[in-house]
Design a protein around this nucleic acid. Structure first.
Length: 129
DNA sequence: GTTCTTACA
DNA sequence: TGTAAGCA
């Protein structure tokens, strides 16, 4: 099923479709791109074209954001995603199993869990004091 | 009609 | 982040 991954990597969705699929504003989607997250391809007319994988990434980012993780933390997670992709490519050459890859990803996610932005909570506490 | 960039409330 | 302006 390698063809399936190929299709998911095809950038064929205009930002308007991605907006509906992710429930994010064009502003947010473009901003995340500036932050180095989910860089879409560009068509002949300089229009952003996203792949299903890109949509998944945006959905993931949205989750992290709702969990209180700031952009810096997501940036690191993104860098890890890059590593994961590389790992996937080498999976065939090397003898890494899907389980190994998942374990590594999980460990990496836990590593950044400490980056959760609680500044707002702290501010609330200060106000109470 | 849709998206792009830039800039400002 | 939202929104407006001026292009493509």
């Amino acid at each position: 099923m390698k063809e399936k991954e190929l299709r998911r990597s095809l950038s064929v969705l205009p930002i308007g479709t991605v907006m509906k699929l992710t429930d994010l504003s064009a502003r947010q989607i473009r901003y995340y791109e500036q932050q180095g997250l989910v860089i879409p391809e560009r068509n002949e007319g300089n229009r952003r074209m996203y792949s299903l994988n890109n949509v998944d990434s945006l959905l993931e980012i949205k989750d992290y954001l709702s969990e209180g993780i700031n952009m810096a933390g997501i940036r690191q997670i993104y860098a890890q995603q890059k590593e994961e992709e590389t790992a996937q490519k080498n999976r065939l050459q090397q003898s890494l199993t899907d389980k190994d890859v998942r374990r590594i990803l999980h460990e990496e996610l836990e590593a950044v869990s400490g980056l959760t932005d609680r500044s707002q909570d702290l501010d609330i506490h200060k106000k109470k004091l």
